[in-house]
Amino acid sequence: MKEFMLDKQGIAKRIAKEIKDGYYVNLGIGIPTLVANYIPDTMDVVLQSENGLLGMGPFPFEGEEDPDIINAGKQTITMLPGSAIFDSAMSFGMIRAKKVNLTILGAMEVSENGDIANWKIPGKMVKGMGGAMDLVASAENIIVAMQQVNKAGESKLLPQCTLPLTGVHCVKKIVTELGVYDVLPEGGFRLIERAPGVSVEEIKQATAGTLIVEGEIPEIAV
């Protein structure tokens, strides 16, 4: 099934379809960062970077990098007209107060009750949670971009997370290389779309937690 799976760009492209006109959006590091490339120009969307910026723009042109203008991934960026700068306390204040409409982040594991693990692997050097715990504890609309199956062939959509948690009962939607899932309030991954060419049976094999399949499952249109 490998040849049909969504690549990172494909996952990002599909997630971009969840963004609505007028949204303030926080994009995490990794695949979520790529989502910015697929937001239509016709849409009025403001990107929040939790180090203290609303109105994040694209990377600067070569030679125009400014060490004072970076994103939460410490990459040089630009500011769009209408940007606003604020300190770190206010940045997480607007996150806690639910002013940010959508949070997109990566994960190592998600459980069927919406718990997420994405910051620590026991026995490995722990780098820290950064802003992830604040984001998942407060955001009402969280979409996770992740690989559903790791290199060892193990599913990362689980009955319960095995890694230390970042947050509990918080993930609402997941987009993986194989499909799109809603995490139901009563528990369970409801399959809503599958990657082009990937069968429901293959998705069942790749989902360790409870998978709910109702009716015909359309292919992801990206």
Partner: peptide
């Protein structure tokens, strides 16, 4: 004022 990750786009 060192830059940790210099990321740019082409013109």
């Amino acid at each position: 004022k060192r830059i940790e990750h210099a990321t740019v786009r082409s013109k």
